[in-house]
Computed example of a mutant assay.
Amino acid sequence: MDTIKGNLGRNTGIIVAIVICIVLCICIGCYVAGRESAERDANIQRIQSTQQQLNNATKQLDEAARENQSAREITADSVVINDRIEQRIDSSETAVSRSEEANARARAAVAEAERIITVAKSTATESERIASNSKSILERAITRNQRTAIEAEKK
């Protein structure tokens, strides 16, 4: 044992250097392992963050797709409604044209009726005048017949 102690005493500097090297190697190993672990943790966090961003982007894309589909449906409905409105406008234009034509025919009929009424009034006035003249002629004829009858009795 003395030899071991003697060897240890002589080689203390070497042993201390070896122990320091071993401790230094352990420290460097721990530093490198910690650094790699930190890099892995950072990479894992980046991956998790990227996955979260991808999940959020996927959700936003899904929502955008739903909104896009909704917009398409609304647009399709709007096209159908606009077509119906256009048809109704065309029908209204046709009805207005027909109404204008009917009004023109009604105006012509009213003008013809007024002309007929004027002619009828004129004819009625003429008929009254003729009737009055006929009555006068008839009264004169009766008077003449009575005179002729009286003269004939006298003869």
Rank of each mutant, 00 (worst) to 15 (best):
Y31H: 12
E36P: 00
I117V: 15
R35F: 14
V96L: 09
K155V: 06
I130F: 04
N55Y: 01
A64Y: 09
A113Q: 00
R107H: 01
K155E: 07
I28T: 04
I22D: 05
Q69T: 09
I26P: 05
G9T: 13
N7Y: 06
R35I: 12
Q146V: 06
G9N: 10
N82L: 11
T148H: 09
E67S: 08
I18Y: 10
T75K: 15
R107A: 02
S127R: 12
D83W: 12
I15Q: 01
L24C: 09
S70A: 10
C27D: 11
E67L: 09
I142P: 03
A42G: 08
S92V: 11
S127C: 05
K5Q: 14
S97I: 07
R72Y: 12
S97M: 10
Q146A: 09
R144M: 14
V32D: 05
L54K: 08
R40Y: 02
A71Q: 04
E39F: 02
I142C: 06
A124V: 06
N56Y: 08
T123L: 11
Q52S: 15
I44Y: 11
Y31A: 12
E126C: 02
A109P: 00
A141G: 07
G6V: 12
I130Y: 04
E139P: 01
V80C: 13
A106Y: 06
A109D: 14
E36M: 13
T148L: 02
C25I: 10
E153M: 03
T58C: 02
Q53T: 07
K135H: 01
D62I: 07
R107L: 01
R140T: 14
R140M: 06
R10P: 04
G6D: 12
